[in-house]
């Protein structure tokens, strides 16, 4: 029996979000739904990275007065994944903005949000 830790729960939720996100992006037919699925997918990746940096019984990586440096070094959660996740949140927002802008442009042209109609292969 594996002991259930917060980290394990984080991995489980991350896996669920990634699977739901990818499935939504591939199988849902509405462009806005596809975009929402993408935000879920990027949330899942963020959660995976944060859970990776978790240290069992650790502390938030802020050096509080009174804590020795060696204790901090052994107990603090990892900070590098946090940097990656901050970048990923920014990238996720900009990608979403571009996707929404393109979806609006294509809606004006075709009058529908159905991916099967909008994205049908057509040469000029």
């Amino acid at each position: 029996m594996i002991e259930v830790t917060i980290q394990l729960l984080g991995f489980i939720a991350a896996a669920a979000l990634v699977v739901i996100g990818i499935a939504g992006m591939l199988f849902l037919d509405n462009l806005i739904k596809k975009i929402i699925s993408f935000t879920l997918l990027s949330d899942g990746v963020n959660l995976l990275l944060v859970a990776l940096g978790y240290v069992e019984g650790g502390v938030v990586p802020i050096l509080i007065p009174g804590m020795s440096v060696s204790e901090f070094a052994t107990r603090a959660a990892l900070v590098f994944p946090v940097g990656i996740v901050l970048t990923n949140i920014v990238i996720g927002v900009s990608t979403t903005a571009i996707l929404v802008a393109l979806a609006i442009m294509l809606y004006r042209r075709y009058g529908t949000l159905k991916a099967s109609k909008v994205l049908k292969g057509e040469r000029r």
């Binding site: 462009l31 596809k34 571009i98 996707l99 393109l102 442009m105 909008v118 994205l119 057509e122």
Partner: peptide, 11 residues
């Protein structure tokens, strides 16, 4: 056509 290609590629 280019909007379409861009949307697919961005997805």
């Amino acid at each position: 056509v280019s909007h379409k290609a861009a949307l697919k590629y961005t997805f």
